[in-house]
Amino acid sequence: MNELTVLPVPPGAAALNVLPQLASILDGAAPAALPVPAFDQRETRRLTDALRPGDPIDDGIALVVATSGTTGVPKGAMLTAAALRASGEATHARLGGPGSWLLALPAHHIAGMQVLLRSVLAGTEPVVIDVTEGFDPAALPSAVEAMTSRRRYTSLVPTQLVKALDHPGAVAALACLDGVLLGGAATPASVLQRAQDSGITVVRTYGMSETCGGCVYDGVPLDGARVRIERDGRVLLGGPMLASGYRGIPDHLAFAEPGWFRTDDAGSLTDGILSITGRLDEAISTGGLTVVPQVVEAALNEHPAVRECAVFGLPDERLGRRVTAAVVAEPGTLPTLDELRQFVERTLDATAAPRELHLVDALPLRGPGKVDHRALESRFG
């Protein structure tokens, strides 16, 4: 049994420095590694506190990739080299063959890490756009021009595509690529239509850290991937790219059935095509990341002007879902959205801060004192 090590991933072009270690990881010649953002000490501390590098880990584990949640305690999906290889090879097979990749995502998350891993498998060096200070679509034309392989790909989240569609040079650059993988959140139909009308080859992906990233492309499972729908509509995923469980949580219900991962998504299969209809839990997928409402509510409840609150998601063309708060204010107070956003950002990631505020006289309830989040979504959505 070996020990989990830390893999600091630098920002920008310096991320390429980790390629030799990733090659060793894929070959099974390096110890298990936990990718962390070298530029973000607070996030690094959050991940290391939860996932305990230095402690023993099962032999065969190559990477421990944190789930994308920006609030609460992260879980670490334990991925083997075989799972990572299966994912990368199936991706290239579906897209039409190996090629060069453009990295425009944080590389310590699974989607960005997969861009680096696929590049290693393809024997190519990725081109990198620095997104440390945010995604700038103006950087796309020169980045795409620097890609020299016959086939060229990138991976984006919907918020990046929305920005790119407002920049003519970025649109032209993306239209030159053989595939733009789009995942991490639901994409509004209007955005997809605009992209397709602009000649961009969008490939909608579905998956998560627990499946080495996307394992269903445009509703069709990759080679080897399996999809099953339970009676309650829950989506289950299986196949060679499946994680070996969560770090330190051997009995987690998500992996209770050998060979399958129980998602929190509801969906349907029609003629072998998977459609995702929504979340079975109350988590909000916003901008490709996940916000847990209860954690944001706990933060808001510390504000002196907040008597009661509920946090929920509403459809958003740019983010997929936007974090929204309904607040019952203390008498004589009138908290503003900016005030509450700044307050939340003192303790949580900015992604968790509400982007919309509704002051209400009372919160709708269902059962004995339980807030009815769906009623709020219906009322304000």
Rank of each mutant, 00 (worst) to 15 (best):
Q294K: 09
V327L: 06
C309S: 05
L334W: 04
P315H: 08
G320C: 07
N301W: 13
P335V: 15
L337V: 07
P335I: 15
L314C: 09
R322T: 14
L348I: 05
A305P: 02
A299N: 07
T336D: 07
R318S: 11
A326W: 10
V306G: 01
P331K: 04
G332W: 02
R322A: 09
P315D: 12
A299M: 05
L340W: 06
E330H: 04
E317P: 02
P335S: 14
V311Y: 03
E330S: 04
D338Y: 09
A325G: 13
T351V: 15
F343K: 08
D349N: 14
E302P: 00
L300E: 02
N301M: 15
T324D: 07
T333R: 10
R346S: 12
P335H: 13
V328E: 03
T333K: 11
E297R: 00
L319V: 07
V328M: 02
R307K: 06
R346I: 12
A305R: 04
L334C: 08
Q342K: 08
L348R: 01
V296L: 00
R322Y: 10
P304V: 11
V295C: 02
A299W: 03
P331S: 14
G320W: 03
N301Y: 10
A305K: 04
Q294V: 11
R307H: 08
T336Y: 01
L314K: 03
D349W: 12
E330V: 15
V306E: 00
V344I: 10
A299R: 05
D316Q: 08
R321G: 08
A298V: 02
L314S: 09
V328P: 05
A326M: 14
N301E: 15
E345M: 15
V311E: 03
P304T: 10
R321F: 14
T324W: 07
T336E: 07
R346K: 14
Q294H: 05
L300S: 03
A305W: 02
L348T: 01
Q342C: 08
N301T: 14
R341Y: 07
T351N: 09
A350E: 13
D349V: 12
F343V: 03
P335Y: 13
A310P: 11
E339K: 07
E308Y: 10
A299D: 03
V306Y: 01
T347G: 13
L319S: 08
E339C: 07
R307I: 03
R307Y: 02
V323M: 09
A298L: 08
V328K: 04
L340H: 04
L337C: 10
A329D: 05
L300M: 01
A310D: 10
R321P: 08
T347C: 08
V323W: 04
T351M: 13
T347N: 14
D338M: 11
E297L: 00
T347Q: 14
V328C: 04
A299Q: 07
F343Q: 01
G332F: 01
G313I: 00
L319M: 14
R322P: 06
A350N: 12
C309T: 09
R307C: 11
A329P: 15
E339I: 09
D349M: 06
L334M: 11
A350P: 13
L334S: 09
